[in-house]
Simulated scan of single mutants.
Amino acid sequence: MSVGEDRYESFATAVEDPYFGALLGTIDEPGGAFTANRAGLATIEWWDAHGTGPTCAELIDAVFEIDDWDATIVDPGRTAFERREQLELLHRWLISYWTRVGTISFIPGHDDIVRPGRIEITTDAGRAEAE
């Protein structure tokens, strides 16, 4: 699975930002539902395999399988430290989004474990993924 591209037409941003574009491209429908369901399924699979849920970082890795985020989200205008901060923010937003839509359950500050939420299969891609 890859991070979504920043092809959004519903509004225009004042400044183009690679991390914001990746976030919008990842949660934009119809792919957003697929990615959210994938996060829920990955949490269930992790729980079945390990007897506990993944951490947020482990879930992000399981959903996207990206080894080099700097090559995936190119942002030469920021320092390596700033890119790490932006990437952490992107990951927190994704966890928050998946929690809000209910495919996972995570309470920041409670513990580090992501729990399964509900999985709604509404698209053909979701059906294929769930089988």
Rank of each mutant, 00 (worst) to 15 (best):
A14H: 07
Y8E: 06
D70A: 06
S105R: 14
A22G: 04
P30Q: 08
G126H: 00
A39H: 03
G126V: 01
Y19L: 00
G51K: 04
R7I: 10
V63E: 05
I44M: 09
A12R: 14
A33M: 03
V63W: 01
F106A: 08
R127H: 07
R84V: 13
V3G: 03
V3F: 14
G53C: 10
I73E: 02
W93T: 02
I66C: 10
W46K: 02
T103S: 14
E82R: 13
S96D: 12
G77F: 15
R127S: 08
R100V: 05
L87I: 03
I95F: 00
G25Q: 05
A130F: 15
E9V: 14
F11L: 11
G31F: 03
E9P: 01
V63L: 08
A57Q: 11
G117A: 10
A36H: 01
L87A: 05
D75T: 04
P18Y: 15
A62C: 02
A125W: 00
S10L: 14
R83F: 08
R100I: 05
L23W: 15
V63M: 08
F64V: 11
P54H: 02
F81P: 00
A33F: 00
P108C: 03
P30G: 11
A14Q: 06
T26F: 12
A14D: 03
R84F: 12
E5L: 13
T99F: 00
S2W: 10
L94M: 13
D61C: 00
L94F: 08
D17N: 14
A14T: 03
W46V: 01
P30I: 07
T52Y: 05
